[in-house]
Amino acid sequence: MPAAVGAADTSPLPIVELRGVSKRFANGLEALAGIDLTVKRGEFLSLLGPSGCGKSTLLRIVAGLVPPTGGTCQLSMGGQTGRRAASGRVGFVFQDPTLMPWSTVSNNVLLPFRIVGRLGAKERERAASAISAVGLCGFEQAYPRELSGGMRMRVSIARALVTDPDLLLLDEPFAALDEITRLALNDDLLRLWEERRPTILFVTHSVFESVYLSTRIAVMTARPGRISADLPVALPQPRARATRSSPDYVAMCDRVSAELGIAMGER
């Protein structure tokens, strides 16, 4: 499998291991049923599916924000296993930038450090480096309302990157952005992934985005959410604008679209 896995695979355990995960909400809605998914270290895995298929719920279960009603979700990071392993090693980016409007860009990015009570020179340096990594040098003292939608999303990504997480969870982060900004942020995200090599779990409903970004795609069905196809993306790395016009890319998009069509019940 040509999926490029660059991070040092020190632990024999996969970074995320979901076994028989199901989720039923209090109102009786069955969001997820029997999800088995193994995420390998350094992978860029996209969860692709129609709206309401439970992809976001699955991501929240992995983050520990929502408990599953059945099955187990095991994280292994930094030589530790379980929920404790996750503390400070998981970054999360929501569909909305989810910034604190009363804080400057710099203070928003420093939030993870502020919560654990570490705000030394080293942390400020890492915040500055995360801000520059997303191309926002010079905007450290700006307030979120002074920024465009794309720039706010960049701040949100910088905040998720600042702790140098092993696992980065992204919940349709570019869905609310215009096409031009979205393509630019796609490339930025790829570059950050190549530089830092976190494991990425990326939720999207865009076939083109998932094929362009990922090393592997898990296609999901809706109500209840199940994984219907698990496809490696064998496109060469690093990916660039040219990738989008390559025949392999187009062929892969066709294949993933077909799987998505099956998942949505259009045979």
């Binding site: 520990g64 604190m100 939030l111 919560i115």
Partner: peptide, 29 residues
């Protein structure tokens, strides 16, 4: 307070007191 920000605070291990001081109070201002 923004529900996603509350979730983010929890993800980074914030206490109820921290959520109150750094999130709920500024939101309420």
């Amino acid at each position: 307070a923004d529900r996603n920000l509350v979730a983010l605070f929890r993800l980074y291990g914030a206490s109820t007191w921290q959520v109150l001081c750094h999130l709920r109070m500024p939101t309420a201002l």
